[in-house]
Amino acid sequence: MKQFLTALALGASAVFASGAAQAATLDQVKQKGFVQCGVSTGLPGFSNPDEKGEWTGLDVDLCRAVAAAIFDDPAKVRFTPLTAKDRFTALQSGEIDVLSRNSTWTSSRDATQGLNFTATNYYDGQGFLVRKELGVKSAMELNGASVCTQSGTTTELNVADFFRTNNLQYEVVAFQGQEETLKAYESGRCEVFTSDQSQLYALRLKLANKDDHIVLPELISKEPLATAVRQGDDQWFDVVKWVHYAMLNAEEAGVTSKNVQEMLNSPNPDIRRMLGVEGNFGEQLGLTKDWVARIVSKVGNYGEAFDRNVGAGSPLQIERGKNALWTKGGLQYGPPIR
């Protein structure tokens, strides 16, 4: 069914290739006056409506940054909440311009879904949640542990691979749903709960005493959560990709939403180029000279967005880990703006 619909979408978009799919997305967006952004129907810290009905989250902020770069107004975004099933079809059919919905970047999706992944917004991976009282500091100390997992998922296979590769003994206790698995962990049926790390932090909030549990630092699988755009529009692809890199470069250069106005007078040539004081790098992308200044002043740099939505400034308290800048031992690396 899903494959059929995707095939239908691909076929139809091929037939109507002269239509929506190939018109320059950036021009269309400028014309209609807003960015149509696909997000999840609710994933804590990544995209969820807050009490006032405003969408918030790390994925949401990327879309707001794109809107800020184009319109100088982060509110010119319309969010389309999508389920995992219809996210790629929605992108294909032109219902949305950007898919910023915690989608794992894989070769098959890149090749067959008619989309291009722009950049990894969040490096996720499978991790472990344990009770603090066990005194475990690393996944390597989990010899002989009983592990709660959802049955029939890749999560279960990853655990098997990890323990076998590292010659550790373990026992799997598998359950059907996530809530059920979490309940089993909470009631002590097992010592370790495993899922994607960002999920672990979110699920930890649902435990009675969240501070009694810690997420171990190791990642045992690669789940790069990336933003995607439709294939066949390189200009739009560049815009979305460079909005993310701009946020990284801003953080690296220490440009924040608070000091961006002072930074315009900075003597540092990198910062001058980035903020559009020198050169016309934004115009080359089809944006304006001050595109980075717009993003940073309206949405903030990557570090600010991370802290506000999932990091220390949020209830989730996710560590930067692999999502730290490359200068701080992480994987987030923005190519230079020049």
Binding site: G42, P44, S47, P49, D50, L207, S314, L316
Partner: peptide, 19 residues
Amino acid sequence: LGIIRAGFADPNWATPVTV
């Protein structure tokens, strides 16, 4: 029902009994 479920994802209200 959809808007209630979307509310479950708000980290400011994630508790053992929210759902």
